[in-house]
């Protein structure tokens, strides 16, 4: 972050301008905007991917379940965002056109790595011109494709995008990362990851924004039942998965376990 000595030097006033020590302050400010957003995490499993978001609720008048933070981008890809909501909306709408253009061109769904690539390039272009500002969004892109199986990528305001076994962003990212590192990723199932994701979001919430109301939003990408069993052969399951909301009953159960583990003293591991 810009130290007090670098603020006011003029190098943070325009996008695409380097400071003498080689930094782009506008990008760093955008990253700061993300750090205030609700925690978002992604978990890569052997048979799919789980995305979860701590959606902070600004008003009791909002309809429960509205203003979703995880978007379906194609049948097999979901994007969870943290940061400025309008920026996230535009980012996911771009991802949707990338996905549909890929289908038109190649007559097949877009691989997850190609989607991450395209969106990284798009975000990066917003660091290059004085007429625009970078995205105040870090996006976790999760999906399943035929060649690579489950894929999890995180694209930051700078345009950088890495592949992960477990990814976290937003205000509770430090606590969430510490918890993710304890999991034997990617060798857990989607069912296990749903419980862990709920617990981690609750844990991160407790750590960072205890006073605020929040809703847990959770989706997964996995093969439809039956086809997963046919395809499983030791390593990761492969195939075009389906991105959809985790069924309500499973979310309720995962939330119950998460609350239980919070009462049991914060950061201890959840039992099987």
């Amino acid at each position: 972050m810009p130290s007090s000595t670098s603020i006011g030097t003029g190098y943070d006033l325009s996008n695409s301008v380097f400071s003498p020590d080689g930094r782009n302050f506008q990008v760093e400010y955008a990253t700061k905007a993300v750090e205030n957003g609700g925690t978002a995490i992604g978990i890569r499993c052997k048979d799919g991917v789980v995305l979860a978001v701590e959606k902070l609720i600004g008003s009791k008048l909002l309809v429960p379940g509205s203003n979703k933070r995880i978007a379906s981008v194609d049948n097999h890809i979901g994007i969870a965002c943290s940061g400025l909501v309008p920026d996230a909306r535009h980012f996911t709408s771009r991802a949707r056109s990338e996905a549909s253009n890929w289908r038109k061109l190649y007559r097949s769904p877009i691989p997850i790595s190609s989607m991450a690539d395209a969106m990284g390039g798009y975000a990066q272009a917003y660091t290059l011109y004085s007429s625009v500002r970078p995205f105040g969004v870090t996006a976790i892109i999760g999906g399943m494709d035929e060649a690579g199986g489950p894929g999890l990528w995180m694209v930051e305001p700078s345009g950088v995008g890495w592949g992960y076994f477990g990814a976290a962003t937003g205000r509770g990212r430090q606590a969430a990362k510490a918890e993710l590192e304890k999991l034997p990723l990617p060798n857990i199932t989607v069912e296990e990851a749903v419980k862990q994701a709920a617990r981690i979001i609750y844990f991160a919430h407790d750590d960072n924004s205890k006073d605020k109301d929040f809703e847990l939003e959770m989706t997964w990408v996995r093969l439809e039942k039956g086809s997963a069993e046919e395809l499983e052969e030791g390593g990761a399951t492969k195939g075009w998965g389906k991105h959809e909301e985790v069924p309500k009953e499973l979310v309720a159960e995962a939330e119950r376990l998460a609350k239980e583990s919070m009462e049991g003293g914060g950061d201890e591991e959840m039992e099987e």
Binding site: K68, A71, N75, R96, S100, R107, E244, E245
Partner: peptide, 16 residues
């Protein structure tokens, strides 16, 4: 199927 219905179904699922 490929040009009309498949994209239609994908777009419909955006709403979730």
């Amino acid at each position: 199927h490929e040009k009309l219905l498949d994209p239609l179904i994908i777009k419909e699922e955006y709403q979730n």
